[in-house]
Simulated scan of single mutants.
Amino acid sequence: MRQQATPVRTAGLGKAVGTEPTAVSGAVLLLPGGEEVSARRPSPVPAAPFVRSLGRRFARAGRGEGLAVHAVHYRYRGWNGSEAHLAQDASWAADEVVRRYGDVPVCLVGVDMGGRAALRAGGHEAVNSVVALAPWLPEEDVAASPEPVKQLAGRRVLVVHGTNDTRTDPELSFRLAARAKKANREVCRFEVHSDGHGLRQHRDEVLCLTVDFVMGALFGRPVSRPVEDALAAPPPIGLRMPLAAGFGRSLRRRL
Rank of each mutant, 00 (worst) to 15 (best):
E125T: 10
A48M: 05
G26P: 01
R57C: 02
H70I: 02
W136D: 07
A245M: 13
R252Q: 15
P21G: 06
G110S: 14
E228T: 14
P148D: 05
M1T: 15
A118E: 04
V157R: 03
Q151T: 05
A84M: 12
G62I: 00
A132E: 00
H193N: 11
P226D: 10
S91K: 07
L239A: 01
R99K: 15
A230M: 08
L231K: 01
R167Y: 15
G110T: 06
N164E: 15
A94Y: 09
H202R: 15
H161F: 14
R200C: 07
G162D: 06
P235M: 09
R254G: 00
P226Q: 07
S194M: 10
V187L: 02
G154P: 03
R41A: 11
A93W: 04
L137S: 06
S82W: 07
L231R: 01
R56F: 11
V187G: 01
H197I: 10
F174T: 06
L251S: 03
D103H: 11
K150F: 12
L119D: 01
D165N: 12
P148M: 05
R203L: 14
L218Y: 06
R249S: 09
V157M: 02
R203N: 13
P222N: 06
A68T: 10
L158P: 03
R116G: 09
C107P: 00
V98G: 12
E205P: 05
V187Q: 05
F58I: 11
V157K: 01
F58V: 07
E125S: 13
A178W: 07
N184Q: 13
H193S: 08
G14T: 06
A153N: 04
H193C: 08
R249F: 08
P135S: 10
G198M: 10
R252Y: 06
D212W: 00
A59L: 05
R77C: 12
R155V: 00
R225A: 14
R57Y: 05
L231G: 03
A118K: 05
T22Y: 03
H73F: 08
T163L: 15
V159A: 08
G248P: 00
D112E: 14
K150H: 10
G198C: 05
A61V: 04
P138N: 08
G123Q: 09
G220H: 13
G33F: 01
V28N: 09
V157Y: 00
L209T: 00
A117M: 13
H197L: 09
M1S: 15
L108P: 04
G238Q: 04
K182M: 12
V127G: 01
